[in-house]
Design a binder for these strands. Sequence first.
DNA 1: AAACTTAATTAACGGTGTTAAGTAAACAAA
DNA 2: TTTGTTTACTTAACACCGTTAATTAAGTTT
Lengths: 205, 205
Amino acid sequence: MGIVARKEQQKKEIRQLILDHSMKLFVEEGFSHVSMRRIAERIQYSPTTLYLYFKDKNEILFHCCESGFKMMLTANISLSLISNPIDRLHQMGKNYLQFGLEYPEFYDLMFIQEAPMDRLIQMGEGWSSGDQSLNALKIIIQDGMDQGLIVPAKVETVAMAVWSMVHGLVSLAIRKRLDKLVSPADMEQTMHDSLDWLLKTLKKA
Amino acid sequence: MGIVARKEQQKKEIRQLILDHSMKLFVEEGFSHVSMRRIAERIQYSPTTLYLYFKDKNEILFHCCESGFKMMLTANISLSLISNPIDRLHQMGKNYLQFGLEYPEFYDLMFIQEAPMDRLIQMGEGWSSGDQSLNALKIIIQDGMDQGLIVPAKVETVAMAVWSMVHGLVSLAIRKRLDKLVSPADMEQTMHDSLDWLLKTLKKA
DNA sequence: AAACTTAATTAACGGTGTTAAGTAAACAAA
DNA sequence: TTTGTTTACTTAACACCGTTAATTAAGTTT
């Protein structure tokens, strides 16, 4: 039994090796340059070996996606120090923008590409990391309403509105759609201004 | 001279033929299934013939993109009948959501894919259709502020915020990221609720 | 009729995700 | 210890993709 356990350990190690180098490829050379053959080349294995550890490319992307969500969650741990719901929501938004601009390739994978979602839908359930962030958003908004700081409304509606705006900002920026609205130099600032504006308008008068 | 003119006319007709069938492919089989070879197959030409009429695939995508913007503009002509800036902005948002949900493949091309923008950046200038919609948005917001209906702020900031939210809604929906927040049956309604909520919060108290 | 121009083609290159078949080493049973 | 079997991996191949170069066939000009 000791042998079979060690074998499983080795299998896990190679799985992780594949994922690690996949993520490195994202960051270093961009999402579009990540192919099964390139990943294989990096870890000095044949391309087909990857299929012994993952069903297909989507499964690899999905796991990289998961890592992205974990990065996002760890960036948000300091949020618990902020007690005021509005301030916490504001900081959460800032973190979201910062993450998107700092790791555009990961953001792409997590919120824009359809490949990882195809895998997710295929699995049926789960996506704990993603749900977790979403729940955190809903709870903050609910808290804000309970404390009379946010104009009351259906939580899902406001959550969707807030998330959509920050996602809209990041995804339009990543896909170069904001260039005609503001100069590249002012872009990041204006994005944060828009977030500030939302938070201000959100507050109960 | 008559002959050379007719030749040019024919060249334009084939160009248009390529674009028409490309757009049909989008609508009928989805963006991912549009390849040079598939387009060529549809118009009964060899794949390489396309390169006699367009520089590369991005150029075809860019022109399809342009057609998408024209569709959007014609959907917005009735806006001029609405005098109240808030109402006009609201209807503009509704039209935006409707367009995105009705023609997701076109929306994808216009606001999500990077291919058409690469072509645009390569050309340096232009993109009149896109700029036109953006200007319309800015003018409405400016009008609203001038008439004291919208809380005053920098126009670019509010325009970016509003656009980002509706784009966020559509793109998250298209990329299946809203499924965990609301059930598919309630999605369209909740998206409109979020838009309504924004317009309500936007109004000057 | 010969020379030239144009429009379209076939063949090919290097790339992609993925599957099937083959190989060599490690292990199990005789 | 030798035989059979499982395991880990590779090579070869398929069917696509965007794109370029070379080639053919038709039409126009001289």
